[in-house]
């Protein structure tokens, strides 16, 4: 597989307060674990929290086109592993 998997950790205010503060470690641990197969970055607000009550499902992480709601380190790693299968 040529194309890198893209992981975007939303670091907008809502996601940050609702838990992505604790996902920042992914920015260090993912490259260490997967090398250049995965590209991970902290990004400004993805705009997913603004609709209605969707803030309650923050923090959001995007793995390629898949949106992970109420993201945790485990959920994100699982999504990466699924794609590398």
């Amino acid at each position: 597989m040529d194309k890198k998997i893209s992981v975007k950790v939303c670091l907008g205010t809502t996601c940050f307060v609702m838990g992505s503060a604790n996902l920042q470690e992914l920015i260090d641990t993912v490259p260490a674990k997967y090398g250049d197969k995965v590209e991970v970055s902290g990004v400004p607000c993805l705009g997913l929290c603004s609709i209605d009550w969707e803030f309650s499902k923050a923090p959001y992480v995007k793995v390629d086109d898949e949106v992970i709601k109420e993201a945790t380190v485990e959920k994100v790693l699982k999504a990466i592993d699924e794609r590398l299968k």
């Binding site: 670091l11 907008g12 205010t13 809502t14 940050f16 307060v17 609702m18 400004p44 607000c45 929290c49 603004s50 803030f55």
Partner: peptide, 16 residues
């Protein structure tokens, strides 16, 4: 800080 964070979210203020 939890309360301040919640307040920003409730008012839709993006600190960044």
């Amino acid at each position: 800080y939890e309360e301040i964070g919640a307040w920003f979210i409730a008012m839709n203020i993006k600190v960044e």
